[in-house]
Simulated scan of single mutants.
Amino acid sequence: MIALKNISKVFTPGKHTITAVDNVNLTVEQGQIYGIIGYSGAGKSTLIRLLNGLEKPSAGSVTINGQVISQAKGESLRQARLKISMVFQHFNLLWSRTVSENIAFSMQIAGAPKAKIKTRVAELIELVGLTGRENAYPSQLSGGQKQRVGIARALANRPDVLLCDEATSALDPQTTDQILDLLLDINRRFQLTIVLITHEMHVVRKICDRVAVMESGRVVEEGDVLTVFTHPQQPITRQFVRQVSQYAEDDAFNPLLASELGGTVMKLTFTGHSTHQPVVGELTLRYGLPFNILHGKMTQTAHGVFGELWLHVAATEEQLHNILADLGRSGIEGEVVQHG
């Protein structure tokens, strides 16, 4: 659906050279919600402008639905952009137009018949939950309502791809969740491919299928959301995961606090159905050992739950070996953090 091959973008303001995107390779499948996350200056906003042809790459190619967007020009590029819509952080609504008129605007630009525009606008107002607000102006709307108008406008020409550039960053947490639920519903109902640019891991956790982590113009980590959350490889990814888990580094479990107990401290990592298993009870019955729960947390993603559990137990080397083997057979990753 979307393929970025060896994409780089270099800016040369004055005598300086700035590499905003550095040799990025990504593939987004049809119907996926794909998150691109990074802090300010990571290159993610430049990347999204490469996707819709607002920027041309210095090297590499951008292909969407078989068309090489990075080489398209003139009318060819204009037609391609009709199928690649954008939702913006600050809404970008026309303040002198009503809700209906804002939604209709992109169809008018595309030359759609008036009757078709009227029907489509009515459909979209109902879809995004703005029934009764058709004649309101942006100044009369809440932030969440403005973003709903932005989403409806972006969907007007039935795009193949929806690009969301920090689409929830200007919203409060409750409204953010409502907008994310709307995007997820649209994705599932129409199999619309969505690419989300964000600096909030909560957004990725809630609705994305896959995620790419950007730092200094490069993709430093990429994979399905559940894997990235449970096994983050890069320091920046671990920082984002702590952010969404609402655990600051200082608040996370410190195994040194259990050192005075002696014995062994184990960290168990659960994913999917394994989160529902009565693990501690089964281990206690099987080995006749008292397992003390020291710390635990669970996080929901769009594709399942993952969790961590820290246990303390006084066990022999042989027992520990068998316990870890039993956990592995149950689909639970076990790690000995402290052994004494």
Rank of each mutant, 00 (worst) to 15 (best):
H273G: 00
H273F: 09
H273R: 12
H273L: 14
S274N: 10
S274A: 02
S274D: 04
S274T: 09
S274P: 03
T275S: 05
T275E: 10
T275A: 01
T275M: 00
H276M: 13
H276W: 13
Q277C: 06
Q277T: 08
P278T: 05
P278K: 05
P278N: 02
P278G: 08
P278I: 05
P278M: 04
V279C: 13
V279M: 03
V279S: 07
V279W: 00
V279F: 00
V280L: 03
V280S: 01
G281F: 11
G281P: 10
G281Q: 04
G281M: 00
G281R: 02
E282I: 08
E282T: 07
E282W: 10
L283N: 06
L283P: 06
L283H: 03
L283S: 04
L283V: 01
T284R: 03
T284P: 04
T284N: 10
L285Y: 05
L285P: 02
L285W: 08
L285T: 03
L285E: 09
L285Q: 10
L285H: 08
R286S: 12
R286P: 00
R286T: 08
R286F: 06
R286K: 11
R286C: 08
R286V: 03
Y287K: 02
Y287T: 05
Y287C: 03
Y287A: 07
G288E: 05
G288M: 07
G288S: 10
G288A: 01
L289S: 02
L289K: 01
L289Q: 00
L289P: 02
L289M: 02
L289W: 03
P290L: 14
P290H: 14
P290S: 15
P290W: 13
F291L: 09
F291M: 06
F291G: 06
N292V: 05
N292A: 06
N292L: 00
I293R: 03
I293L: 04
I293M: 06
I293Q: 02
I293C: 03
L294D: 10
L294P: 02
L294Q: 12
L294M: 13
H295C: 02
H295M: 04
H295L: 05
H295F: 15
G296K: 09
G296M: 07
G296S: 14
G296R: 06
G296A: 15
K297M: 09
K297E: 11
K297V: 13
M298S: 14
M298I: 12
M298G: 11
M298P: 05
M298H: 11
T299E: 14
T299G: 14
T299Y: 12
T299L: 12
T299P: 05
Q300C: 13
Q300P: 12
Q300K: 15
Q300G: 06
T301A: 10
T301P: 08
T301I: 11
T301W: 15
T301K: 11
T301S: 15
T301F: 11
A302Y: 07
A302S: 07
A302F: 08
A302V: 06
A302H: 02
H303D: 10
H303I: 04
H303R: 14
G304L: 09
G304W: 09
G304T: 11
G304A: 12
V305R: 15
V305S: 13
F306C: 09
F306S: 05
F306T: 07
F306Q: 13
F306H: 15
G307Y: 09
G307W: 09
E308C: 10
E308N: 07
E308F: 15
E308V: 14
E308K: 13
E308Q: 14
L309H: 09
L309S: 07
